[in-house]
Simulated assay, not measured.
Amino acid sequence: MKTLFLAWQDPKSRAWLPIGRLTFDGTKYQFVYTQGALEAQSQHKFQLLYSFPNLNHVYRSIELFPLFSNRLMRRSRPDYKNYIECLNIPEGEDDPVAILSRSGGRKVTDNFEVFPCPEPDENGLYHIHFFAHGLRHLPVCAIEKIDQLEPSELLYLANEFQNPYDSRALLLCTKDHHIVGYCPRYIVDDVFKLKNKNPELVKVHVERVNPAPTPLQLRLLCNLTAEWQEEFQPFSSREYQPIVADTLAECVTD
Rank of each mutant, 00 (worst) to 15 (best):
L4E: 01
F232Q: 03
I179C: 10
R168D: 06
H137R: 12
H205P: 01
A158I: 08
D25Y: 02
Q47V: 08
Y240G: 06
L149F: 05
I128V: 15
D25C: 01
N198V: 11
K12C: 00
E230R: 11
T174C: 08
K28N: 08
R219A: 11
P11T: 03
A226E: 00
V97K: 00
P242M: 02
Y126T: 03
Y182H: 11
T34H: 06
A98C: 10
L201A: 15
D121A: 11
R14W: 15
R185G: 04
L248S: 10
R208Y: 05
K45D: 13
K195H: 05
C183D: 07
Y59V: 02
L64R: 02
Q35D: 02
Q30I: 03
K195N: 09
P53L: 05
V204D: 00
A40W: 01
G124M: 02
C141D: 13
M1L: 04
A132L: 04
V180N: 04
K175S: 14
D190Q: 12
I146Q: 02
Y80D: 08
H178L: 05
W228Y: 11
D79A: 10
V252S: 01
F24A: 00
L87N: 05
I143W: 12
Q47P: 00
E227T: 13
V114A: 03
G104P: 06
C173F: 07
V180A: 00
K81P: 01
V97D: 03
P164M: 01
A226Y: 00
N111K: 15
V188K: 12
L48H: 03
V180K: 03
P213D: 11
N198C: 14
